[in-house]
Design a protein around this nucleic acid. Sequence first.
DNA 1: GGTGAGCTTCTTTAC
DNA 2: GAAGCTCACC
Length: 659
Amino acid sequence: MSGLNPAQLEAVRYCDGPLLVLAGAGSGKTRVIVEKIAHLVAHEGLAPRKIAAITFTNKAAREMRQRVGARLKADAADELTVSTFHALGLRMLQIEHEAVGLRRGFSVFDADDSAGLLRELLPKGAKPDALDALRGLVSRAKNAGLSPEQAAAVAASPREREAAAAYAEYQQRLAAFNAVDFDDLIRLPAALLEADPERAGGWRERLRYLLVDEYQDTNTAQYRLLSLLAGPRGAFTCVGDDDQSIYGWRGADPENLTQLGRDFPALKVVALEQNYRCTRRILRAANALIANNPHLHVKKLWSEHAEGEPIRVWACRDAEHEAERVAGEIAFLRGSRRAEWSEFAVLFRGNHQSRALEKALQLLQVPYHLTGGTAFLDRGEVKDLLAWLRVLANPDDDAAFLRAIASPRREVGAASLAKLAELARHAGMPLSRAADSIGLLKQLPARAAAGLAEFAGIVQKLRAFGRDATPAALCREAAERSGLLAALRAQCKDEPGFQRRRANLEELAGWLEGARGVGPDGLAAQLALLGHADRGEPGNAVRLMSLHAAKGLEFPYVFIVGVEDGTLPHEASLEEGRLEEERRLFYVGITRARALLTLSHSRQARRFGDLLRLDPSRFLAELPESDLLRDGDTSGAHAEVRAARTQDRLSAIAALLKD
DNA sequence: GGTGAGCTTCTTTAC
DNA sequence: GAAGCTCACC
């Protein structure tokens, strides 16, 4: 525990009651959590398996597990619960499934699945924004911890009453599919513990101490789950920073920081204000930026580090130009500063911004690792295989059935499926059981019936195979027997394309090799929680991720791209009251940098075919000019380079780097 | 009636 | 660049 400052030490040692640690960026909060876990084990006599550390992203959970693993003995670290709120909720539901009316093997619907369900509840031809609005209303109700009945009771406007009715109907359908959605992973366990104090007591026995990271991002349902698990004695440490609250849009309520003091009057508060991460210039810029937000408590982050280098601000022509400069600079810096690739991170507001960067990095042969976004679980072939796994675990999962029956195609089309759905509804059975019923199949066209029977046969064989095979083996067998692999091979025009897709499926299976304690029933549910591209070890590679995904991480060299008005702050958040969160997002980005920070923006973007002029982000004007180093107009200064095509320019840079 | 090619439209962030 | 859609072909 050496090297902790007095405030950190206090936070680690205080175990007599509820504790809130207000931890500024870079103030060593992860260190505090890790040391506290070690302290609980060594000095409070708590078994590691009775301790749960909760984070908000899978990335954060992984990093945390790694750091705890380095600090504790390996077997002790293995017994700890280190997971996201959602993964903890899933574990609770898998154990308590009967109490909430779920059967073994229940599915977890991802955002797409639940959107599909909700779409059916809307009148035909409803606008897409009607769907988005409904999704938002239902999700908000769930994140506030409201059941359908409660939502109906508090509905104030006709719109809300309609939404509450849709929520109730949606919930019924989910139940019919033996499925829950992401929000239910929190809401249902919380409601269960609330309704059943004895059960709550049992869980408190099971988890004796909770450590919650990024506490400012909890929503009401998560807060309830936390306080129910911690119980009246308040056996928890929450660590948070209201300046890093960036999940308001999914119901996070920084108000929970104040609520904690009301619900647990014995709450002790410790503030960590020394920053160990950033140079003074970076910290000064961050402080200056965040000072533009209203604050209840003004934190004064300070650092003993050196002044450091100025923050570089680049004006680029467009996103491609920006990506080239970033990629070229990373390659250059790695050489000139003898840095590892993994010391660089490029952060952006929206995941789509990664595309230009990937292209430029590929051309320079810079290894990179992309986290988040639509990279993996959103790939068609991965979703297909996942749908098969879901059908295998959960015969009631109609959404999965509909996807699996169509991949690969087996001459069962929309019309036959509509007929099947009709028959299934009358018979009161889910689609996949109906597809297995000879009586029902007779009422369908012969071709469709044959396809359905074939499907049912494959499912049966795979279920039998899965009874005594590892999840990974089942996954591979399913890819083969379903015909997915064969269809992919036939579908792909080029061999590399096929190999890439095959590798994606193999990766899905590979991930399951490492999953501990996941049976065939829980396998698909577990996978649904896996962050989209959030798999595999990044290795020694440049990290590309969204600003949201970057929270909790740090890098010596950080590039933030797309620092334009409309991108950061995002144009959907320009209105009054939403700008603060965008500012905090930028604050999070800036404070990821230890040594050198580069901010870049484009002057123009191609959107919907035509060119759009972009202004630098208004947030740039909030940074102290004396800590910035603005470049000249490089796009004007290098007219001949600008004229060259991207490809040529990049090979020129690549050639330069070789020398 | 099933399938796939080709069209348009829109792209915040995460579990 | 992906998902939803229409439409022509089998």
